[in-house]
Design a protein around this nucleic acid. Structure first.
Lengths: 200, 200, 200, 200
DNA sequence: TGATAAGCGAGACGGTACGTCTTGTCTTGGA
DNA sequence: TCCAAGACAAGACGTACCGTCTCGCTTATCA
């Protein structure tokens, strides 16, 4: 079969990367942070834990910051929000899904680490921008869909509203250092609902 | 004067610490972060910049985390909110004051650094807890005063509301990596005002 | 050739050590001591001078003491004494060779440093023992060869005699802080010759 | 009483130094070296052990090197050699006296430390010169007295002979790292006796 | 089938920062 | 002027980490 090599797009010559390595590294990052904290998140420690060589890590993520962001993203994952016909229900769904992720062990320190890593204009900057845009976009899309649908006021400042939806959970986790819960989600949904919802 | 030695409470023997050193170090931290970022915030660099020896720094702040938190706190400072007779006006006042601080150069990276530093169960943990409690307490007190005064609904969940007030500014700064402004403050005040204010 | 990998005995995996580093460090030690004295013999200074990183030094010599001993040994080198048929001539040869080494610049301070370094039961102890045994062994072997040959009295206390041969040069250098010369060698050879030589 | 202050020669104004401090410091130095080695000989450790402040030490000995030399000298002490009518007996007496001192605990490390300290052209240089001249002078005087008396050959090179007498004990102690004993003394006396003694 | 290219583990490399230790000075309050 | 206590500047210590490189080897594609 001539096309065998185009199974993956643009596969060059040479030995292909082992997927096993990629997964093992990300798992090792999460496990190390959960068990011993960010200070223990050493590239050497990751390499040992993942039973992988350091160059194998750097081949995939050029800096530690990229690795932290990649590991976080691998756990947060993309959320697809079905059209539930009601922006309040959709916000509730996405926030509760996020709460569940935030409550997994080590996620607090990992996310704090992401912010710390992103603070400097390092190599990981663009990866971080992509990540944060994706997260903010989810909420933004819900609001815009609500405007189109007619249950969100058309004069809503989507940017500010999205910030106010996303911020409390992360703040509770990182700044207040406590786990966010569904009670907080309820408060956020009610608040934002009153502020940008169309009266009925 | 017999009591001369009790001029300062509990002064021990030996040469007293020079206040000059304390100030110079905190200034150096802020300046370094503002000019070159968190990566340049080296203990050695701080010592050189402050024209101070490293042991003099470690005598005051046992870890780098403590130093970061102390430097941040020295700039954020305590806010005293006068009774303006209206919780919306009080929130607006405290948030605008905070926005002003957040917009000073380097404050974004410094605060991100604080979260990164606080993420690990290091020695700086208790200093951080005191700091964050103080910050959250400000907003909480405004809301409680509002309840007592009668312009905040008595069934308000003060904890959740305080989080929702404090979070957006910090999130905008640290996560979205943009400077919060009075427009965002206005949105927050309006939103929270609708949610917990007594209808009139 | 199947045996290619056994070219060097017992080569492990990983990047091999660069010989360049080893030589550069030893040269830097000798140069620093000669030019600025033992006080200037800082690990940092050695690293800078040798254009080598500090860890690269510590990988080879775990303590400063080991480094000092290694540097000294690299200059003193092993002496092979040919059988000259006369123990007096052999002693004269080995002592003059040693005098020549001792007279090179910085050697006085380096050897004083070796004794200072060896004074503590540090890690360098065994390296020092090996060194001193080798040095004492040279003289001892000359005397034993003399006994076998018949020009050294068979009742000679080789240990004491070896000490008395080796000591004056080092003492002149380190304790009296002057350079030993061939005149001193002559006196030592004559003295020991009279004491342990067979009358003819 | 006007003359009270001239009790000691050249006594200035102000509080006189306490002799207690001087003794306590020298004792502390010897004890620390004997118990824990030269590495533990810290100025702070000496101050704590002697129950004395650091400035009180530095007032007496400007550098650590001076202190080491002073402490050593306080133990080695001056030897007065009575005229025994025989230079061999006199050498035996002074060497055995010295062996006794060298065999006290910690003396090996202390003397090695003296050589290390003297290796650099520091402040302690002149104190060391005075010390070594005094030690070498003892032996030299014995030999000169022997020449005058007539039991030492008048063509003797006193300098070289003195070195050969003094060196072996110190070398045995510092270089070979073993305790010198009367057997070594006997060998030295016999050797030197044969070489410079007048035949009878 | 053999050459080429990229992957792999292992570990040394240069560089840099860490937090501690030591030296010798200085500043207190008090004798 | 001395004392004890202890902070100070300066700078070396030995370790840890980062991101790169070299080694000997393996696994794929391409010729």
């Amino acid at each position: 079969m001539v096309e065998k090599r185009t199974r993956d797009a643009a596969r060059g010559p040479g030995r292909p990367r082992e997927e096993r390595v990629t997964h093992a590294v990300l798992d090792a990052v999460v496990a190390l942070v959960a068990e011993q904290g960010m200070n223990a998140l050493t590239m050497d420690a990751v390499a040992v834990r993942a039973e992988v060589s350091k160059p194998a890590i750097y081949r995939r993520w050029p800096t530690k910051q990229d690795l932290i962001i990649a590991a976080t993203e691998s756990r947060v994952g993309p959320l697809s929000i079905p059209d539930l016909g009601d922006f309040r229900a959709e916000l509730r769904a996405v926030l509760n899904a996020r709460v569940e992720v935030y409550r997994t062990p080590g996620m607090d320190r990992l996310i704090a680490g992401v912010f710390g890593a992103a603070a400097d204009a390092g190599a990981g900057r663009s990866a971080y921008r992509a990540y944060i845009n994706r997260v903010m976009g989810e909420t933004g899309r819900i609001l815009e869909r609500g405007i189109a649908r007619g249950d969100v006021r058309p004069d809503t400042d989507v940017r500010a509203a999205a910030t106010m939806v996303a911020a409390p959970l992360v703040f509770r986790l990182v700044a207040e250092q406590e786990l966010p819960d569904s009670h907080l989600v309820e408060s956020v949904v009610e608040l934002v609902g009153r502020a940008v919802g169309v009266e009925h």
